[in-house]
Measured scan of single mutants.
Amino acid sequence: CHSECLGNCSQPDDPTKCVACRNFYLDGRCVETCPPPYYHFQDWRCVNFSFCQDLHHKCKNSRRQGCHQYVIHNNKCIPECPSGYTMNSSNLLCTPCLGPCPKVCHLLEGEKTIDSVTSAQELRGCTVINGSLIINIRGGNNLAAELEANLGLIEEISGYLKIRRSYALVSLSFFRKLRLIRGETLEIGNYSFYALDNQNLRQLWDWSKHNLTITQGKLFFHYNPKLCLSEIHKMEEVSGTKGRQERNDIALKTNGDQASCENELLKFSYIRTSFDKILLRWEPYWPPDFRDLLGFMLFYKEAPYQNVTEFDGQDACGSNSWTVVDIDPPLRSNDPKSQNHPGWLMRGLKPWTQYAIFVKTLVTFSDERRTYGAKSDIIYVQTDATNPSVPLDPISVSNSSSQIILKWKPPSDPNGNITHYLVFWERQAEDSELFELDYCLKGLKLPSRTWSPPFESEDSQKHNQSEYEDSAGECCSCPKTDSQILKELEESSFRKTFEDYLHNVVFVPRKT
């Protein structure tokens, strides 16, 4: 048989008469490798580009789960590009990614509803959504962080984005990388972005840091009482949809009607710091009717980097990364020049730590249904340095008659930039024990000054392991946590139920 035959053949030295091919099969003959313009397919066939392209389009058009959109890589027609490569849609070739590779997620039936953290986790790592997304989240724990972890990498949506009755959302900033909504599939009414009845939605994105392009379709905003109209108009300008909307697409009466839409800028007039305090004062603000001013709200939190936005980490279910302080308005003076500047002394802060701070007014709604208010920009203030805590785990070892090696770990709280350490030492008198000992005694162990690591005695271990207080009263049991108490109650309830079950099964009433 021919060298490319495997198993047997019907005619000697003829690659077209093989029972099976050793390498690849091409047009009725066995070959060692697939010549151009053919590609290896499933490690035994040679196919042309049209064959591989037909497989790709067949799966793409069917949208069946589990099928493969075949691509070409290293002269092979394979189910998908290997790690580190992405497909070129024009020629199906796998090309190296520039940075992290995109991950295209194809949605069944063309859309997916995100109504819980669990459903959001199914899209973790996706960068391109081939379909439409509907966000409908009523509640949950730590929602802002969970949504950002699972949806934060999405850069492109081919269909539309719909935010509907998501009472738990305060902001859409968890879509931190969303840059493009194509609108290839539109919501009824030709809408590519749809926001309806979101009672706590206050911000779409921080438009000073976020760009969003909507290729096709219109915007729809109705019944978002805490979303200011200025935020919607800003989205029109940034996304390129200005002029597409009709009169009733953006409701003037049901958007922002319960919001404090600040239209003035508060400026800080005085800032002073110490290692654990920050004193702030800002310019006074009074609405047209000074009785509408209820006070100020001061927001602050630790910020290692200057990239904080107002609604980071917030949701309507209680999660809030900001510390909020309510401040009463100052006494009002008739003389504008003698107006008191409101302020606040922030206490209990960490030394040498940068804080993000902003302040906003708290006002009631005027009778004319106009909203007044003022808010400052987010500023960054760093507390002063102070003395560091003591170095940890000092170790001293003498390696000769004239040297001592000293080692330690950095302090747990540096409280500033540590530039150097101060080492103090003092000579001590020799131990009298060394002169009084009889060095001729056998088995004498000389006193040693070398360091030995501390260890816990058996008594201390027994005390720590004991669940009861000892007789001397030195140790006591740790208080039980809520989960331990709940577990004990469940076990007790189970024992009672099981005992009742045994009584009912074992003891049967005697027939009379």
Rank of each mutant, 00 (worst) to 15 (best):
K103M: 03
V104E: 07
V104T: 15
L107D: 03
L108C: 03
L108K: 10
E109F: 02
G110Y: 11
G110V: 04
G110Q: 13
K112Y: 04
T113K: 12
T113H: 12
T113E: 12
T113C: 15
T113N: 06
I114S: 01
I114D: 00
I114A: 02
D115T: 06
S116H: 06
S116Y: 02
T118I: 06
S119D: 14
A120S: 09
A120Y: 11
A120R: 02
A120W: 04
Q121C: 11
E122V: 11
E122W: 14
E122P: 05
L123R: 01
R124Y: 01
R124L: 10
G125A: 11
G125Y: 08
C126H: 00
C126Y: 03
C126P: 00
T127M: 09
T127G: 05
T127Y: 12
T127S: 11
V128T: 09
N130C: 01
L133V: 12
L133R: 00
L133T: 01
I134K: 02
I134P: 00
I135V: 05
I135M: 06
G139R: 13
N141I: 06
N141S: 11
N142S: 13
L143R: 07
L143I: 15
A144I: 03
L147Q: 02
L147W: 01
L147P: 01
L147V: 03
L147F: 13
A149P: 03
L151F: 09
L151Q: 00
G152I: 01
G152S: 03
G152W: 10
L153N: 10
I154S: 01
I154F: 01
I157V: 13
S158K: 12
G159N: 03
Y160T: 11
L161D: 00
K162P: 00
K162Y: 10
I163F: 11
S166L: 09
S166K: 00
Y167C: 14
A168S: 01
L169M: 06
V170I: 11
S173Q: 06
S173M: 10
F174K: 00
F174E: 01
R176L: 04
K177P: 01
L178F: 03
R179A: 11
R179W: 09
L180W: 15
L180G: 07
L180D: 12
L180M: 06
I181F: 01
G183L: 01
T185D: 12
T185M: 07
L186W: 11
E187T: 09
E187Y: 04
I188E: 05
I188Y: 10
I188R: 14
N190H: 12
Y191L: 05
Y194M: 05
Y194I: 08
A195Y: 00
A195S: 09
A195D: 00
A195T: 06
N198H: 00
Q199I: 07
N200V: 06
N200M: 05
L201C: 05
L201S: 00
Q203A: 07
Q203V: 04
L204F: 11
W205I: 01
D206K: 15
D206T: 05
D206R: 03
S208A: 14
K209F: 12
N211Q: 14
N211Y: 11
N211F: 04
N211H: 11
N211D: 11
L212P: 05
T213I: 14
T213N: 04
T213H: 15
I214Y: 03
I214K: 00
I214F: 14
I214S: 03
T215N: 14
T215H: 09
Q216M: 13
K218T: 15
L219V: 06
F220G: 15
H222Q: 11
N224W: 01
K226Q: 12
L227K: 00
C228N: 08
C228L: 06
C228Q: 10
L229G: 03
H233F: 03
H233S: 10
M235A: 09
M235G: 03
E236C: 13
E237F: 05
V238G: 10
S239T: 10
G240R: 07
G240W: 14
G240P: 02
G243W: 03
G243E: 11
R244H: 09
Q245C: 09
Q245I: 07
E246R: 11
R247H: 12
R247D: 04
N248W: 13
D249L: 15
D249R: 04
D249P: 14
K253P: 10
T254H: 15
N255H: 03
N255G: 05
N255L: 06
D257W: 06
D257Y: 09
D257R: 05
D257P: 03
Q258F: 04
A259H: 15
S260V: 09
C261D: 06
E262W: 07
L265K: 12
L266C: 03
L266P: 00
L266D: 00
K267E: 02
R272F: 00
T273C: 13
S274M: 13
F275L: 14
K277F: 05
I278G: 00
L279V: 12
W282R: 00
W282C: 01
W282Q: 01
E283L: 06
E283G: 15
E283W: 02
E283T: 13
E283H: 08
P284S: 05
Y285L: 14
Y285W: 11
W286S: 06
W286E: 06
P288T: 10
P288N: 10
D289W: 03
F290R: 06
D292H: 15
D292Q: 14
G295K: 14
F296P: 02
F296R: 00
F296V: 08
F299R: 12
K301H: 04
K301M: 14
K301L: 09
E302I: 08
E302N: 09
Y305E: 04
Y305P: 11
Y305C: 09
N307P: 08
N307Y: 03
F311N: 13
F311I: 07
D312P: 12
D312K: 14
G313Q: 12
Q314V: 10
D315R: 04
D315Y: 05
A316F: 14
A316N: 10
C317K: 01
C317W: 09
G318S: 15
N320S: 07
S321F: 12
S321I: 06
W322T: 03
W322F: 11
T323Q: 15
T323P: 01
V324M: 09
V324E: 15
V325G: 03
I327S: 03
P329S: 05
P330K: 03
L331V: 11
L331P: 03
N334S: 11
N334Y: 07
D335Y: 14
Q339I: 12
Q339P: 07
Q339T: 08
N340S: 09
P342N: 11
G343C: 06
W344E: 10
W344P: 00
L345F: 09
M346E: 03
R347M: 05
R347G: 02
L349T: 03
L349K: 01
L349E: 00
P351A: 12
W352N: 08
I357T: 13
I357R: 00
T361Q: 14
T361Y: 13
T361D: 01
T361K: 02
V363L: 11
T364N: 15
D367P: 07
R369L: 12
R370Y: 09
T371P: 09
T371E: 09
G373S: 03
A374Y: 06
A374H: 07
I379H: 06
I379R: 07
I379K: 10
I379P: 00
I379S: 09
Y380H: 01
V381Y: 03
V381H: 04
Q382C: 06
D384C: 04
D384G: 08
D384S: 06
A385H: 11
N387G: 13
P391E: 02
P391R: 02
P391N: 02
L392T: 03
P394F: 01
I395K: 10
S396W: 07
V397T: 10
S398R: 10
S398Y: 08
S398P: 10
N399C: 11
S400Q: 01
S400K: 09
S401N: 13
S401I: 13
S402H: 11
Q403Y: 15
I404S: 06
L406P: 01
K407R: 06
W408H: 00
K409F: 11
P411A: 04
P411V: 08
P411F: 02
